[in-house]
Design a protein around this nucleic acid. Structure first.
Length: 137
DNA sequence: GCCAACGTTGGC
DNA sequence: GCCAACGTTGGC
């Protein structure tokens, strides 16, 4: 069971939008980076991840779950990239800010800290448990 | 709004 | 196949 982190600019697609999408969820399209693509491809049904607001908010705000595994991204004309479907599972009672993550020594190795530009990232089991706890779940 | 980091493109 | 130039992302 792997864990993930998905970045989204709230002005484009926010946690509220994700919640509003309900059980049907949404396709996580638009990834155009091969490392992120590889991560999408590795995802298995039911795997969960952190939903992070970039630029505005800069915080982990919720938990999402993979409800459909990797398939072609219909917004990609080159046919090289794919996507998964995600649904919202739970919002964090206390959003975990980037500042708080950087201040936590146990999270020093998070990809979010070291490669902030990667839009779909792996998260270790320890990081997952800690961020959830910091978020109040 | 700036700029560092990173990815991609295209000329050679 | 290298690398300079350019575009984009995202934190500050």
């Amino acid at each position: 069971m792997a864990y993930w982190l998905y970045k989204s600019e709230p002005s484009v697609w926010s946690w509220d939008d994700q919640v509003a999408a309900g059980e049907a969820g949404t396709s996580w399209n638009g990834v155009r980076n091969h490392v992120a693509r590889k991560n999408l491809e590795a995802m298995r049904l039911g795997e969960q991840g952190l939903f992070y607001h970039s630029n505005e908010g800069k915080a982990v705000v919720g938990i999402v779950e993979v409800i459909r595994t990797y398939y072609p991204d219909d917004t990609d004309e080159t046919g090289r990239f794919g996507m998964v479907d995600l649904k919202a599972v739970a919002g964090l009672p206390n959003p975990v800010t980037l500042e708080a993550i950087k201040a936590e020594p146990a999270l020093r190795e998070m990809v979010l800290v070291n490669n902030s530009r990667l839009s779909v990232q792996p998260v270790s089991a320890a990081e997952w448990a800690l961020v959830r706890r910091m978020g109040g779940l």
